[in-house]
């Protein structure tokens, strides 16, 4: 993955990656943007396919006794991101990763940011995906901008007020988890 400044040569199409989302694109104009507090964003890039994707997860994985996995968990969003990358032409063996976020912004609260960061690192090791760069932890919110077709990332700290509240967004019920027998 390259770390050169993001090029201004093309008019950029900015797409926000919200909590609970994973997006993939090979569009040369596309820029994925997200703001992170304790959440973690994974940027994946396949340099040969010139294709990239970003997810943004709220929590790592369900603890014992949890009701199940929903779309806010890293364990789900990592798989969605990898599968979508592969579906659009990436090879898993070529994937390179960056990790951002995982701040512990409120002292006294559970260290969700640390747990998210540790999960993300562990996940990449288990899946044998090379981690090229990380900017995790601390107490500051971050804005991450990722050009998926170029593999270029810019991460900077921002005013904590800009970070989304770490709460699941309310969405229409998805078809996920439903069982269809043929």
């Amino acid at each position: 993955m390259l770390h050169a400044p993001i090029s201004n040569a093309l008019p950029v199409m900015r797409l926000t990656v919200l909590q609970g989302q994973a997006r993939v694109s090979a569009g040369p104009r596309v820029l994925f943007s997200t703001v992170l507090g304790s959440c973690v964003a994974t940027c994946l890039f396949d340099p040969e396919a010139q294709l990239g994707g970003m997810n943004h997860f709220l929590l790592a994985e369900p603890g014992p006794g949890a009701a199940g996995v929903d779309e806010h968990y890293g364990v789900y969003l990592m798989e969605v991101l990898i599968n979508e990358m592969i579906a659009q032409g990436a090879a898993k063996s070529r994937l390179r990763a960056h990790l951002y976020g995982g701040a512990n912004m409120h002292s006294g609260m559970a260290r969700i940011g640390t747990m998210n960061s540790e999960f993300a690192r562990r996940f990449l090791i288990r899946e044998r995906i090379e981690l090229l760069r990380e900017d995790l932890g601390g107490t500051s919110a971050r804005r991450v901008e990722f050009r998926p077709a170029l593999g270029q990332v810019r991460c900077r700290t921002v005013d904590p007020a800009q970070a989304p509240t770490p709460a699941p967004s309310v969405r229409a019920p998805a078809a996920s988890g439903d069982v269809e027998l043929f």
Binding site: G68, Y73, G177, V179, E180, L181, F182
Partner: peptide, 22 residues
């Protein structure tokens, strides 16, 4: 020739019910 189709993220109770049904 698949018997059924479940979309992740899965719900453990629905999954277990499906296992019993098939």
């Amino acid at each position: 020739g698949a018997t059924g189709w479940i979309v992740k993220p899965f719900n453990p109770e629905k999954l277990a019910a499906a296992v019993r049904r098939v």
